[in-house]
Amino acid sequence: MGNFRYRDDQPHEEPAVTLDAFLEQPDATAVRLEAGEDARQLIPHLDRLQLIEVSFPRFRDGRGFSSARILREAGYKGELRAEGDVLIDLLFFMRRCGFDSFASQHSLNPVDVEAALNRYSNVYQDATDEAVPIWKLRHG
C-alpha cells in the first residue's frame, strides 16, 4: 500500500485537475501541480482549494519540496499530497515541508513508514511543520 494520510478531516472527493484547467474553472477545488509548474500561481486561489496534489515524477526531482513550502508559507491549510515516485526515505522531509498525505506509486511497508517518520526526535532548522529547532531547545 502506498497511501498515507495525516489529517483528521474527510478525504476530498473531487478529482484534481491540471493547473491550466484549474485556473479556468472558478469552482474547482482540487488541483494537480506537475514538477516545474509554479506553485505561486495558486496563491490567489488558496481559499477555495481543498486538495493540492504535487507530482514527484522521479524521486530525485526535489522541486516539489519547494512548492510545498511556498504553498504552506502562503497560508494554505488544505490537504497537500505528494504523488508519484514517493519513497520511504523522502517522507520525513516531505512532512517537514508541509505534505500531509502521500500517494506513492510503490507499496510502502507501514512499519518502515512509521520508523522513518519518527527516526529523528529533533531537527536543526525551522521548516513548515511544528518541529521546534534545536537552537530553540538550547536557549529555552
Binding site: 526535489g62 519540496f65 519547494s66 522531509f93 517537514r96 531537527v123 536543526y124 521548516a127
Partner: peptide, 14 residues
C-alpha cells in the same frame, strides 16, 4: 553546518 544538515527543502537538490 547545523542549519544545512538534513534541510528538508534542500535534501534532493538538482
Amino acid at each position: 553546518r547545523q542549519a544545512t544538515t538534513f534541510h528538508p527543502e534542500f535534501s534532493y537538490l538538482p
